[in-house]
Design a protein around this nucleic acid. Structure first.
Lengths: 237, 237
DNA sequence: AACGATATGATTTTCGAAAATATGGTCTGG
DNA sequence: CCAGACCATATTTTCGAAAATCATATCGTT
């Protein structure tokens, strides 16, 4: 019975995916989103090899995948770097999110069943409980980040299009990086709790027009906050 | 003077990108879109190695990139295969294209300058000339494919969002694969020339509502044609 | 001094062998 | 005859060395 897992001590880390490459893709993505690897930072193989304990080609595979997601910038024959940030890119990501998220909310409200309603309510509940516990710096709390992501995910989860959900997820990641960028300079988090509550209620009561309007305001005000408090990081490039 | 390129005979092929991996990504993408590699086909490394003359890890990098684009399906520890096709996927791709392409046409019409108008007119002109030359099986003609792609690209090129243009390009590729799928069974190409002409005129005359309406009909009728003539290939899976 | 060519060192990119994992067939006990 | 363990083979995945390419400093010529 204890025979099938003799190597858990030998194999170092594969917390996420089954392959090392998928695992490193995941870990690199998290670090880039959290700005632990700052925008524009060159990603040299020597450094990465030591940091992640993987070989050249495995790292290369991970970086290639992240380049396709827009989190890494691949410069042929001259290596990779963390994708740079800019006002233009922030505007584009925000615009694209508004376009897609509004459509997906609308579809979810039209198609969502009981399970969808339960998911929306329960993910918001968890988010609020975490916020009560530590209302200070939510983005620093990994649990808050996950709960926040899952609440927004649940809102659109009944839209019926895996294709659009995948696109939405990429844009969400790119936007979250900008939020992290401004988190260190933002004086105090604004009242997101109330906004989330209002969005949930509009969704559950099947008021699509209101929900769409609230989501757009939510996304745009977040983006405006980033531009306001992290503007000095966006000017160059 | 002739000293800087002594190895053009040694190095076998790098027609597209500067790196072999980028080149193979490009070639694999073309073959998958053209259904030379049919949907669901397992992509085994032995075969690919012989076909493309590259090593395991280089191929792996290319496949990973294509998996992020949705053209390849990565099954961890069990290799890669060409992304399968299905009615559901066709519907999702079509819906997503309609949503995004309509928005981008609108923005392009609002923002496009003289150069944009010239690009739209000239790409349509080239497309029509190619169609006159050989009106039979346009999808079999690489030149027609390129011209067709460039015409549709030019229509949205002034939208101002590289982010949305990249998403649009991926969806276009995925849709084109379905068109190839049905090309062998379609009795005769319908009157696309007239549709393209009408779209161009609506765009140039800045009639956004009409252009959007025509584009939606264009995309949806193409998709309907695929479902009609390649439906027997979509049922399983 | 300015410029271009060239050598040197740093870094990326590619390769094929080796390790890890899955697949398929065979055998055994029920 | 079936279910499940076990082995042998096929395939994927990972690694580090080697080749290719880029960046920088040095040198010679005008």
């Amino acid at each position: 019975m204890g025979r099938t897992m003799p190597d858990s001590a030998i194999r170092p880390r594969k917390e996420f995916g089954k392959t090392i490459a998928a695992d490193i893709t995941h870990r690199l993505r998290e670090e880039i989103i959290a700005c632990a690897l700052p925008p524009g930072e060159p990603l040299r193989f020597d450094v990465l090899r030591e940091r992640f304990g993987a070989s050249f080609t495995t790292l290369r595979e991970a970086l290639t995948a992240l380049a396709a997601e827009g989190l890494v910038d691949a410069q042929e024959q001259r290596g990779f770097r963390v994708a740079p940030v800019s006002r233009q890119d922030l505007v584009e990501v925000t615009d694209a999110r508004v376009l897609i998220e509004m459509e997906l909310i609308r579809r979810s409200i039209a198609r969502g069943d009981d399970d969808w309603e339960i998911a929306v309510i329960s993910t918001l509940h968890r988010l609020k409980r975490i916020e009560q516990r530590d209302p200070e710096h939510p983005l620093r709390d990994p649990e808050w980040k996950i709960a926040h992501r899952q609440f927004h995910q649940s809102l659109v989860s009944a839209c019926g299009s895996a294709t659009l959900l995948a696109i939405r997820a990429e844009l969400f990641d790119r936007a979250e990086r900008y939020r992290h960028l401004s988190a260190n300079f933002r004086p105090r988090p604004r009242d997101k709790a109330g906004e989330h509550q209002a969005i949930m209620q509009a969704a559950i009561s099947r008021n699509a027009d209101l929900a769409v309007q609230l989501i757009e305001a939510h996304i745009r005000s977040t983006s405006d906050n980033v531009a306001k408090y992290a503007g000095h990081l966006l000017d160059n490039e």
